[in-house]
Design a protein around this nucleic acid. Structure first.
Length: 469
RNA sequence: CGGGGCGUGGCGCAGCCUGGUAGCGCACCUGCUUUGGGAGCAGGGGGUCCCGGGUUCAAAUCCCGGCGCCCCGACCA
C-alpha cells in the first residue's frame, strides 16, 4: 500500500532528512539560546540506555564515578599551554555574578582535565594511590560556530574519564582498554555499528594530548562521525598540576594521565547511521522500547490478547509498550516507525478471527502472521535477528563506500561518496593540508590490518580519509 | 567571519510589489460517526504581524535603524 512520505527522503537531502527525523520523531528541539537543545523524552530515554551500557563497561574497567564543578577558574585552563590554545575560542566565560563583576573570570567547563588535575594531584601521594581511575557524567559547554542538534551543540551531555598512572605503559594500556572494551564494544555490540579504530594525526589530536585514539563511524551519506575518543595525555597535565608521587624506591615521580569521552553526539550518530526514509531504526539491544504491541482497535475481543502478549513479553525480559490509544491506526503505526521501535505486534479483529496476530520488523518492514500463542516468543526472537541485520547492513554499506586508493587525487574523489584508504606516507602533513582544503580530513591512522597503531611513526600506517560532521 | 534565506496564532506558510475588516493548511477543543497505514462531518478557541523610529487620515504592507533565527562553508565531541 502506498504511504505518503513522512520525511524528506535521504537521497533528496540528507541534512533535511536528519532535521525532519529529529522533529517528527519528537527527539529534540533547539533551545532558546542559539546552539542549545531540549532533549525530549524519547531521545532522553535512548540516551539513558546509552549511559547505562557505557557506564557498566566503564565500571568493569575499575573506574569510579565522581562529580566535579561546572565552573573552572580561568587561570586553571591556562596552566596547560596547548590546552588553552585549543579551547579558548569556544569558551563561555562568566564575568559577572552576585550582582558584581568577578575579580577573576570563571569559565564554564569545555572539558575537565584541569579541575581533575588539580584534585587528583592532591589525592596522589604514593605509587600505591595509582592508578587513580575516575569518570564523571556531566554537561559541558563549547561555543561552536555552527551548531547541529545532537552532533554539535553549545551545551552537551557526556561522560569524561580522567585517570592517572605510574608509568607511560600503564597509561597507554588503560587508554586502550577503555577504547576497546568500552567504546568499541558498546558501539559494535549495542549500537550495531561498524567502527574504525585508529589514532588521530598531529593536527586532529586533542589539545594537550600526546596521542588521541578515535572511533570513527560512517553515516548513511558516507560522511564520518567521531563517536568516542581516548587520549594519552603524557605528563603534560601532570606537570601543569604537579601531580607527583613517591615510587617504591622513594623517588619523586610525575604521573601519566589519560582522558576519554563519549557524548550525546552518539544519539545523532545512531540516527544517521541506521535511520531510513521512514525514520529511526533503533537496534534492539539499545532500544528503550523493543516491542510495541498495537491494538488495532481497543475492544473487548482484542484487549485480553493484547494484555496477554504484553505480560508474556515482559516476563521474558523484553522492554515492551502497549499502544491502545484511540487515535487512527495509520497515525500510530507511523509514529512507531518514526521512533524506530524494532518489532511491532499488531493485534486486531481480522487477524484474531483466524487466531493469529501480525509481527512486523521495523528494519525490513517484513510482516508475518503468527498464531496468538506463539506471538510473544516470535517477537522476542526477532530482536536478535534485527540487531544482526542492522549491523550487517551498516557493515556492508560502509564497506561498499570505502575504496583503496593510492593517490591524493583518488582519495579526494572517493571522499565524495565515502571513505578512502591509502598509505599515510603518501599523504603526510602536506597531503593532509591539501585534503583539508577540499573539506576532506584524515579520520584516523590504522595499522594495515585495521588496528590501532602503537607506533605513530611506523612506516606502514594506513590513512582513512573522508568528509566528516 | 564569508555566502544565502527568513521573522505573521503551537508548527508550516500566504498576504507586502500596488497601504484600507489578518487569512490558509496542520495541530488544538467539543460532539457524533469511525479505527487493518497519517479518519470523516459539524461546531469552536487562539494574533504585541520580531523591536524602535518615521511617512500617512490609515502601516503586516512604504522608508530608516536595530535585533534574532535558520541553512551552506572555515573551527570542533
Amino acid at each position: 500500500m502506498a504511504r505518503a512520505p513522512v520525511l524528506t527522503p535521504q537521497a533528496d537531502d540528507f541534512p533535511q532528512w536528519y532535521q525532519d527525523v529529529v522533529a517528527k520523531a519528537e527527539l529534540a528541539e533547539n533551545g532558546s539560546v542559539r546552539g542549545t537543545m531540549v532533549i525530549r523524552p524519547y531521545a532522553y530515554s535512548i540516551w539513558e540506555r546509552m549511559q547505562g551500557e557505557v557506564d557498566a563497561r566503564i565500571k568493569a574497567t575499575g573506574a569510579e564515578n565522581v562529580y566535579f564543578p561546572l565552573f573552572i577558574p580561568e587561570s586553571h585552563l591556562q596552566r596547560e599551554a596547548q590546552h588553552v590554545e585549543g579551547f579558548s575560542p569556544e569558551l563561555a566565560v562568566v564575568t559577572h555574578a552576585g550582582g558584581k563583576e568577578l575579580a577573576e573570570p570563571i569559565v564554564v567547563r569545555p572539558t575537565s582535565e584541569t579541575v581533575f588535575g588539580e584534585f587528583m594531584a592532591k589525592w596522589i601521594q604514593s605509587y600505591r594511590d595509582l592508578p587513580l581511575l575516575l569518570n564523571q557524567w556531566a554537561n559541558v559547554v563549547r561555543w561552536e560556530l555552527r551548531p547541529r542538534i545532537f552532533l554539535r551543540t553549545s551545551e552537551f551531555l557526556w561522560q569524561e574519564g580522567h585517570t592517572a598512572h605510574a608509568s607511560q605503559a600503564d597509561a597507554a594500556a588503560y587508554a586502550r582498554r577503555i577504547h576497546f572494551d568500552v567504546y568499541l564494544a558498546f558501539l559494535r555490540d549495542v549500537l550495531a555499528l561498524p567502527v574504525l579504530v585508529g589514532i588521530k594525526t598531529d593536527t586532529e589530536r586533542f589539545a594537550g594530548a600526546i596521542n588521541t585514539m578515535t572511533c570513527e563511524v560512517m553515516m548513511r551519506d558516507g560522511k564520518a562521525l567521531q563517536m568516542a575518543t581516548s587520549h594519552e595525555l603524557g605528563q603534560n597535565f601532570a606537570r601543569a598540576f604537579e601531580m607527583e608521587f613517591s615510587d617504591a624506591e622513594g623517588e619523586r615521580r610525575l604521573a601519566w594521565t589519560t582522558s576519554w569521552g563519549s557524548s550525546t553526539r552518539m544519539v545523532g550518530g545512531l540516527i544517521m547511521a541506521h535511520g531510513d526514509d521512514s525514520g529511526l531504526r533503533v537496534p534492539p539491544v539499545l532500544a528503550p522500547i523493543q516491542v510495541v504491541v498495537v491494538a488495532v482497535k481497543d475492544d473487548d475481543e482484542t484487549r485480553p490478547v493484547v494484555e496477554a502478549v504484553e505480560r508474556e513479553l515482559r516476563d521474558a525480559g523484553v522492554r515492551v509498550r502497549v499502544d491502545a490509544r484511540p487515535a487512527g491506526l495509520g497515525r500510530r503505526l507511523t509514529e512507531w516507525e518514526l521512533k524506530g521501535v524494532p518489532v511491532r505486534v499488531e493485534i486486531g479483529p481480522r487477524d484474531l478471527a483466524e487466531g493469529v496476530v501480525s509481527v512486523v520488523r521495523r528494519d525490513t518492514g517484513e510482516k508475518a502472521a503468527v498464531p496468538v500463542a506463539a506471538a510473544a516468543a516470535a517477537a522476542r526472537d526477532l530482536l536478535a535477528v534485527v540487531q544482526e541485520s542492522l549491523a550487517e547492513e551498516a557493515r556492508t554499506r560502509a564497506a561498499s563506500l570505502t575504496r583503496e586508493v593510492t593517490t591524493i587525487e583518488e582519495a579526494l574523489e572517493a571522499a565524495e561518496t565515502g571513505f578512502a584508504r591509502l598509505p599515510w606516507k603518501t599523504v603526510g602533513p602536506e597531503g593532509e593540508k591539501r585534503l583539508n582544503q577540499k573539506a576532506v580530513s584524515v579520520r584516523c591512522l590504522q595499522t594495515p590490518d585495521g588496528g590501532v597503531p602503537d607506533d605513530a611513526d611506523a612506516d606502514d600506517l594506513v590513512a582513512v580519509v573522508g568528509r566528516s560532521y
